[in-house]
Design a binder for these strands. Structure first.
Lengths: 339, 339
DNA sequence: TTGTACGCGTTATCAT
DNA sequence: ATGATAACGCGTACAA
C-alpha cells in the first residue's frame, strides 16, 4: 500500500524507480546510462529499453552535483550599440550554441558593457558554468585578467595581448595585409586607412595588417593617410573630406559601418566609385550588399568562429591540451569598388 | 591533524566549513543567507560578515537540487535568416536577460528553426530551466502545443491563437489600425499593403489592424491592393510594379525589410517619395535611417518586450496569477514619406 | 558483473 | 533561536 502510493505520487521517475522496477540496483541503471563502468550487455540493453519506453531522463541537476560539472558554458556578449556589430556577435553565439548542444552542453548568455565586472563575477561565483567564451577583447582587458585569476576555463574570440590566454580569431592581420598587398599589385598606390577605436583588439589586428603590407612593399605608412578613433558619421565624413584633398587612391575601411558612411559621403560629393576613388572594407556584411557598386571586402565565417571557440573551450574543460592560438581562414572578395 | 588537512585541501568553502568556523550549525548559516526561517539578528550578522570576508558563495547546483529549482530560464530564438530580424530578437533577448539577472536568474539560449522540436524537448527533459520564453509565434504553433503538454511554465513573445497561452506582445494590430486611420485622415485614400508570410502571428496581427482601419472607415479592403507572402526582393519589386498600375496613394510595408526594397525599387523607377507615392512601414529599424527621405513608421520598444516577457514568466514560475495577455505600447512616427 | 554505501552541498522538517 | 537529520537524485569507490 505504502509503496503503491509512493509510486503514484511520483511526478517524474528517478533512477531508483527504474532500478526497483527492473529488479536491479540504482548504480546499475546509472552505469547503463552513462556507459561508464562494467556492465553486462544484456542488462544494459534491458535498462536502456526501459528508460526509453518510459521516457526517463536523469535529473541534470543531481548529475551536476555528483560530478561537479554543470554541462553549461557562458558566452559573454558586449552590449551592442551599433547595429552593424550585432550580426557578428549574434552569429558567433549561434555557432557556439550549435557545438554546445552537440556535446550536450547548454549555453548561457551574459551581456556586459566593457567595464562592469559584476556580471562576470556573479557567473564565476555561482559556479553555474564550466567555462566561458569571451567575445570582445580589449588591449587592456579587465575581463581576461579577472577570469584568469579566477581559474575558470575560458577562451577569447579575438586576439589578446596576453599570450597565456586561449585565443580564437580570424586572421584579421593576415587578411588585411594580403588585401592591401593585392591592391598594391593592382597599381593602387596610396591606400588610406579609416578606422574606429583602437582599444579593441580586432581593430589593432587589422591596422597591423595594413601596416605590414606597407612595410613589405618597402614603403612607410604616411601619417596623413591614417585615421583612427572614428566613431561618429560626422567624424568619418570629415576624414573623407580631408583625404580627398591629399590625393589618395583608395580608402580602406576598418569595418562595414565606416564603409557605409564612406560610400554615402562619396556619393553625396558626386565622387564615383571606382572611377574617382577606390573603396574596400576589412569586414563584409550584408549592409554592403545594398550599394549600386559592389564593394571589395574581407569575408570571415562568423558562425565558424563561434563553433571553433566552443570546441576549444570544451576540449579545455575536458582537460585536453589546447592550442593557445587558433587562427581561422578568410576570403578576399575583389569587387567593382577597386576595379 | 585530520581536520587541518581537510580544511587545507578544500578548494572552495561550503556551508559546513563556514558553520564549523563560526561554531554554529550548517542550517543556521543557510538561514542567514536565505533569510528564511527564524534566526537571531546577532548571529545573522556574524554569519553574513564572515561569508563576506571569506567571499563564500553557496553552491548553486546544490541549492537547485534541494529546492528543485534551477534559477535558469531559456529563451527560444528563431534561426535568423534575414538580417533585419536580428535586432528584434537579439534586443528582446537582452531585455529578458536584464530582468533575469536582476532576479538572480540566468538565461539560456536555444536556437531553433520553426520545425524541429528536438532542442525544445531536450531542454524540457533535462529540466535545466524553470521556464521558457518563446520568441516567434506561428498561427499553427507546434512549440506552444508541446510546451503546453509538457507542463513547463512558458510565455510567448507575440500573439497566439491559443487563448490559454500567456502572451506578451506589442499592440501590432492596434498600431497598424491607428496608422492607417491617420493616413486616411491626412487625405491619403488608397493604402496598399505589402506583407510577408502569414504563418507568423506578428504578420497576421498587422494585417488585422490594416483591415480594421478600412472597416472603421466604412470601406472595404480591395483585394488588388493587398500583397502577402512576399519573401524575396524580386517578389516585392514585382508587387510594387503591379501596384503602380493601379493608382494607389500609399504603400504600407509590413516590415522594414519589405520597406527597404520598396524604397529602393521606387527610386530605381524614378518615383519620388512622397510626391508621387507615399510610403510607410509597420516596423522601424535603423535600416530606415539610411534613406534620403525619412519614413513614417511604427516604433516598438523591443528591449521592453523582452523585459516584460521575463517578468511575467518569473511571476508565473513563482506561482503568481498572471495576465494571459499583455499588450505593450507603440509609437507612430509621422515623417516625410507620408507628407 | 552487480550491489552497498557514501558523498556532492544545499534546503527543510522536526526537535530542543 | 538553533541544531541534528533527512531528503534532493545521481555517481562512484569499494565490496561481494
Amino acid at each position: 500500500m505504502d509503496s503503491i502510493n509512493k509510486e503514484q505520487s511520483k511526478e517524474v521517475l528517478t533512477i531508483h524507480d527504474v532500478a526497483r522496477e527492473l529488479g536491479v540496483s540504482a548504480s546499475t541503471v546509472s552505469r547503463a546510462i552513462s556507459g561508464k563502468g562494467r556492465i553486462g550487455e544484456e542488462t544494459r540493453q534491458r535498462v536502456l529499453q526501459y528508460i526509453n519506453e518510459k521516457s526517463f531522463y536523469p535529473n541534470a541537476t543531481a548529475r551536476s552535483l555528483a560530478q561537479s560539472r554543470t554541462y553549461n558554458i557562458a558566452i559573454i556578449m558586449p552590449e551592442v550599440k551599433d547595429l552593424v556589430d550585432m550580426p557578428f556577435f549574434h552569429t558567433c553565439m549561434h555557432g557556439a550554441e550549435e557545438v554546445a548542444q552537440a556535446n550536450d552542453y547548454d549555453l548561457l548568455v551574459v551581456t556586459t558593457d566593457g567595464i562592469n565586472l559584476k556580471p562576470l563575477e556573479r557567473m564565476v561565483n555561482n559556479r553555474k558554468v564550466d567555462g566561458m567564451i569571451l567575445t570582445r577583447t580589449y588591449e587592456n582587458d579587465l575581463f581576461q585578467a579577472y577570469l584568469k585569476k579566477s581559474g575558470i576555463p575560458f577562451v577569447s574570440v579575438g586576439r589578446s595581448k596576453d599570450d597565456s590566454v586561449v585565443q580564437i580569431d580570424h586572421d584579421n592581420s593576415g587578411a588585411c595585409k594580403e588585401l592591401v598587398s593585392l591592391l598594391f599589385s593592382k597599381g593602387i598606390k596610396r591606400v588610406a586607412y579609416l578606422g574606429g577605436g583602437m582599444e579593441q583588439m580586432v581593430n589593432i589586428s587589422r591596422f597591423e595588417g595594413y601596416s605590414a603590407a606597407y612595410k613589405e612593399a618597402g614603403r612607410k605608412v604616411e601619417s596623413g593617410m591614417v585615421y583612427t578613433g572614428l566613431s561618429t558619421k560626422f567624424q568619418v565624413s570629415k576624414a573623407v573630406d580631408e583625404l580627398l584633398k591629399s590625393k589618395v587612391d583608395c580608402m580602406l575601411c576598418q569595418d562595414d559601418y565606416i564603409c557605409d558612411e564612406v560610400v554615402h559621403h562619396l556619393a553625396d560629393k558626386g565622387i564615383a566609385i571606382p572611377a574617382d576613388m577606390k573603396v574596400a572594407s576589412c569586414h563584409h556584411s550584408r549592409l554592403l550588399d545594398n550599394y549600386p557598386v559592389t564593394i571589395t571586402s574581407l569575408k570571415f565565417d562568423t558562425m565558424e568562429i563561434g563553433r571553433k571557440a566552443c570546441e576549444v573551450l570544451l576540449a579545455q574543460i575536458n582537460g585536453e591540451e589546447v592550442e593557445k592560438l587558433t587562427l581561422l581562414d578568410y576570403e578576399i572578395n575583389l569587387k567593382e569598388s577597386t576595379k
